[in-house]
Design a protein around this nucleic acid. Structure first.
Lengths: 223, 223
DNA sequence: CGCCCGTTTGACAATGCTCAATGTTCGTGG
DNA sequence: CCACGAACATTGAGCATTGTCAAACGGGCG
């Protein structure tokens, strides 16, 4: 089994129980895994590939809530709440998933306090991330969000040069905007020689000024 | 002790342990309970009064994440994550709070699988609520959010006439906008004879059209 | 009575979205 | 291997929504 953090260091016996309840499932690129409102009989873990969790407006506009990769879980909320997924999930790439049936998993929780505690920590982290996202959407503007995103990538990768993990359409949706706006903002940053962009390749030329963009310095901060 | 849902039906012994670890604390109207980033040594329950949980921008603009009342808990996230509050909390009224120290509470969890499960459900519900808030902020406009809010109140109260539980400044902050905009939107709804507003008193005259506003019908839904 | 806070209103500015056109990249099938 | 189409990406013009700033009003509390 893949090394889901949630299950690290589990006893042989419990790992065996776990193995006993999961199903493996493949998903092609673009395949829908579940839809918001759909009945939830369990949650998923990612063995390979990447998955986006998102909400859709009537207009068709999407807001991506999460992008998950190997070793991460999604759809867990439905396990502890009466069974409907609160958002939709679609594979971004050819993926291999593990399905954990809710009922069996809940039984297992009773036997493994360890897992339960880690699940609490996981949900707490998700909450913290969501709170940050709400803050971003409500209190910051698109350039600021983009700058923060780029700085985050820079830190994650540890280099000034990196490849965006998302298409610009998807990135726009993740940042709560649309591709046209993203393109323009990126253009402005490039014209200002703060970053260099070529396709998905990004080179951060001036981290200082990028940070100013991220925190909206030189704007209206009446600190 | 107040009837926190989390602790209903607990054994005598466990309730006693619980009583043993909590501290009571008063807070005046407008008093800050904790700030974002502050060290978190535990979480709170509300015995009396109401509390807002919010994020602040550099500009001073606020986004309210939650409004909590008697019987509700807040700050729990900090218990399962390394100890910093992800948002700030301020009393909206004169309040009476119960403080649960994190460490002692975690110990208690080991002895009460019941509480743990309920905590998982609680965090899951918070996540679902946050996901809905992100959806609102990103995919809907202010009139739509306001309409949805009013319809929610209507349903909660069970009447077409009710009193707003928040000042319009706070309501604006909750809806992710500013008082001026809220005032104008409310004016438009009143002029259209969809609602009648007098101070905090709201009378919903035309629920149908209010629902149209909420779901942006007659707008660009290219279904 | 007067001050302060919450609220409303107006004029304005700007952020970001829509629509439309065009160029580019990439994967697939001939 | 190349050609084609679909999705991705960029750019421009225009505009809708909403935030900013300034002012004025009202009610409640000291």
């Amino acid at each position: 089994m893949a090394d889901f953090f949630l299950f690290r260091g589990l006893s042989e016996e419990n790992l065996a129980s776990l193995e006993g309840i999961i199903f493996s499932r493949a998903a092609c690129k673009g395949e829908d895994i579940f839809f918001e409102g759909g009945q939830a009989l369990g949650f998923y873990g990612i063995l390979q590939g990447r998955v986006k969790i998102y909400k859709t407006a009537f207009s068709g506009k999407e807001q991506i809530l999460h992008i998950f990769g190997p070793g991460e879980l999604f759809g867990e909320v439905a396990v502890f709440l009466s069974g409907n997924y609160p958002a939709s999930a679609t594979a971004l790439e050819k993926s291999q998933l593990a399905f954990f049936p809710a009922e069996e998993f809940r039984d297992l929780l009773g036997k493994c306090p360890d897992i339960t505690l880690r699940m609490l920590a996981l949900l707490s982290k998700r909450l913290k991330d969501f709170a940050a996202m709400i803050e971003d959407l409500s209190l910051r503007e698109v350039p600021s969000r983009l700058a923060a995103y780029l700085l985050l990538q820079q830190r994650d990768v540890g280099k000034d040069e990196f490849v965006l993990p998302l298409s610009k359409v998807q990135l726009a949706s993740y940042l709560g905007t649309i591709p046209e706006t993203l393109s323009r903002v990126l253009r402005r940053l490039a014209d200002a020689e703060i970053v260099r962009v070529a396709g998905r390749n990004v080179h951060i030329l001036d981290p200082e000024r990028l940070e100013e963009e991220a925190f909206m310095i030189n704007k209206k901060s009446r600190s």
